[in-house]
Nucleic acid binder design. Structure first.
Lengths: 290, 290
DNA sequence: AACCATGTGTAACATTAATTACAGGAGCAA
DNA sequence: TTGCTCCTGTAATTAATGTTACACATGGTT
């Protein structure tokens, strides 16, 4: 989307000769902290430049704008483009196809979700949770909602191999109380709950929390109500060009966590995994690289 | 010049739990084209988010601002700071942290995996498979390996809601023969098999293929041996800075496929989903926007 | 020195934005 | 169902912004 019109900056420079003294003063301020200076109210801008508000308008008109708000719109667009530029550049590799194929459109959005999710994540908390999950003195329980249970399963699947004492809560809520009996202050409960949030899960989390269980929550950008009683919460952006949510951003965190936990317990888990491998008589078609 | 106050983005994120339905809708728009979306007039912003202007103000207050203009000032400062940064720094959103934090390193690799996976994918085949999965005259069977069964489960989980006639094969290979009896030339078998490839799965695929079943395979960049008897194969890059593989690239394809299938059968699946929703008495935190 | 032209700010005005008050409505509990 | 609470939008109100009209000032010209 190349700008049809010239940049405001350029317009100012081009028109500079035709500008009057106070207009130039204004222009100077405008250029000085470009472009944000121009996005204040006309009053503040005028005050900052030490000129009157009509001067601002007169200049805007000279530059070819309809009025001050019109100039501001142009500036806003510029800034938006400026800010988006690095991203769109990075995404350039798919731009050609993106218009054509839904898969690429989808990928585009997922990528944005990942970025924003990571920008927002608290790496300190990430480390804390990794440590928590690596602590084998703490029994681990994993549970997910109707849809998110697959993500829960993924985490369970790996952790259960890496360390002992990991339990996946059954799918039906009516068996959960049995698990709750076993949970205490040393336990950790990992919950996956994305919209639409499930009442059962919230209840589970509440009771567990009351029992002193450490609750780790994976949820979407809006946040499951469980967040209120969770000790750690990961928010992943899930909106996708689909009537379904995309859990990839969350999956990313999960995988990274698994990697961290594995690293932390490398010595202990190594033999555990080797034993397990031995049990499976899977054909070894590929070398273990790295 | 580190911001004394938290970023608006962050504030929104933190307060998300306390936000109401329409406030979240607004927040979503705000995040979506952040931060320029918030620099318009309150009227336009409200209109863009599909909420009323008072909602905007209420949220601004909840975030700790004095009013809407106060929020705007904060945004403006953020943008100004952002713009003043040298482009190179701004551009590399994760470079600063990537050296430090494993999560960012991990994300970096995953991103590369996604890119290469998409570059390599045959969009025509993608469409064909989407069509295949949307065809309800074809019974669908889904199965995965020890680890990849979570991915299989994810696909199953969604498809089973979207359309009838979807079956997830049990975890233990010894019950698979029973399913095989039901499969014929009209059936579709979706298999997830990433290293280390499992002999059971290969056997299953072979027999199914001989029975005329259409086999769709999700595997890694090296390719499961099942590829030889599969009709369609998706290869996703799975290497990660971890002793575990990352299935995110595959997950991306799966999610995109789900979106496509859902789209293709929107009319039919709509009421199916509505029925299902009705059964779950989950709290309605989000409106059904047309 | 008086005049004109141009530039500039003041002040009144119109318009739009921001805020408040209030009432209808959805969801939840008893 | 009834009553309650909490959202949420409509509409009225207030504040501000943007605009225009006009008068004063300045500087150059006759």
């Amino acid at each position: 989307m190349t700008p049809v019109t010239k940049l405001v900056k350029q317009k100012i420079q081009d028109a500079m000769e035709d500008l009057t003294r106070s207009e130039r003063q204004l222009a100077s301020i405008l250029m000085q902290d470009y472009p944000m200076g121009g996005l204040q109210s006309i009053t503040k801008l005028a005050a900052a430049a030490g000129v009157s508000t009509p001067t601002v308008i007169r200049m805007a008109r000279k530059l070819g704008f309809d009025g001050f708000p019109d100039l501001q719109d142009a500036l806003r667009e510029e800034v938006a483009a400026q800010i988006k530029k690095p991203i769109s550049k990075r995404d350039a590799w798919m731009v050609d196809e993106s218009a054509e194929h839904p898969l690429m459109r989808f990928a585009q959005v997922v990528w944005t979700n990942m970025r924003h999710t990571l920008e927002r994540i608290d790496t300190g908390m990430f480390d804390q949770v990794a440590q928590l999950l690596a602590d084998t003195t703490r029994p681990l329980y994993v549970v997910g909602g109707r849809i998110s249970r697959s993500n829960a399963d993924y985490l369970y699947n790996h952790l259960q191999i890496i360390r002992p004492n990991v339990t996946m809560l059954g799918n039906s809520a009516n068996v959960w109380p049995q698990y709750l009996l076993d949970m205490d202050a040393s336990s950790v409960l990992v919950i996956f709950d994305i919209r639409r949030y499930e009442a059962h899960l919230e209840k589970l989390a509440q009771i567990a929390s009351e029992r002193g269980v450490t609750v780790v929550l994976f949820t979407d950008q809006w946040g499951s109500p469980i967040g209120r009683c969770a000790d750690f919460t990961f928010n992943g952006l899930v909106e996708a060009p689909s009537s379904w949510d995309s859990t990839i951003a969350l999956q990313l965190i999960v995988e990274a966590l698994i990697a961290e936990v594995q690293d932390a317990r490398w010595e202990e888990s190594k033999e555990r995994i080797e034993e397990l491998e031995a049990m499976f008589s899977s054909t070894r078609l590929f070398r273990n690289q790295g």
